[in-house]
Design a protein around this nucleic acid. Structure first.
Lengths: 136, 136
DNA sequence: TTATTGTACGCAACCAAGTTGCATTTGTCA
DNA sequence: TGACAAATGCAACTTGGTTGCGTACAATAA
């Protein structure tokens, strides 16, 4: 939470109610969130910002590398705070998310193959889908 | 191409002009396609089906395991024919796609971790993004 | 404390992808 | 060839996301 607030300051982003609330939401969230999910979370903070504001805010947070986009196996954009290297196990039924850590040997393999084609890697999507223990 | 036509038959799907054209398009395509891309491809076959028809067709082809959905790092659904196990290197600029093969040790690691949480894996998204040799 | 200024925000209108209900056409098989 | 279910079209709608423009407000300096 403070971590995010400091990042705002470091990037000379003004401290607004929306940004305070977003810092709280993203730090508590145990999974990446879609914009509609965030809009409804914000109601708990008695904030109902216009969706335009939220979309524009996320542009800013992405540009300042505070948030990153995460794509699961659907056509929804999700957002989470940038910190450690991890992937996700996503339950298709209840949307529960389990974070997983793996060694990076696979990524190294991909890098080697990319190099062969003179392809410059920038980012990746490595997510896994199925049913969690409860839903199965 | 014939491969797809046989799959239609095997699943008692009627042979229509749309399905013939789709078989041709997907077999020639060297990358997964979005619905709008497919709609414009179909014009080359002098077919302009209603988008509803195409969306419904894809539901059927997914259910019959002829197509699968592929998600790159954006919010667009893409489709490709189901066959071999491979991943993609996607150029963010020109949308060029390079298929890559990797050993499956990473997937095995994930499976082990999933098992620990009693999570049943169904599918995954492992795609890589950057700039191809021309665009860089 | 107030004045200033650019950032942040709201609103309305819009766009594109995807969905739904219902009517019509067409492939297939008897 | 006729009958019927599968396939298609159309119109209207929903949802996620965008654009232009005018207003509010957080931060800074006086």
């Amino acid at each position: 939470m403070e971590y995010v607030l400091r990042k705002y300051q470091a990037n000379s982003l003004r401290l607004t109610k929306l940004r305070e609330a977003l810092a709280g939401i993203f730090c508590q969230a145990e999974k990446p969130l879609t914009v509609p999910e965030i809009l409804s979370e914000l109601k708990k903070y008695t904030l109902e910002p216009n969706k335009t504001t939220v979309y524009r805010e996320f542009e800013i947070l992405l540009k300042n590398k505070i948030l990153k986009e995460v794509y699961f196996n659907d056509d929804k954009k999700r957002y989470e705070i940038i910190h450690e290297h991890h992937h996700h196990l996503v339950c298709k039924k209840c949307a529960k998310v389990i974070k997983i850590d793996c060694d990076q040997s696979f990524e190294l393999q991909v890098e080697r193959q990319a190099k062969k084609s003179n392809f410059v890697l920038e980012n990746s999507s490595m997510e896994f889908f199925g049913k969690c223990s409860k839903c199965n």
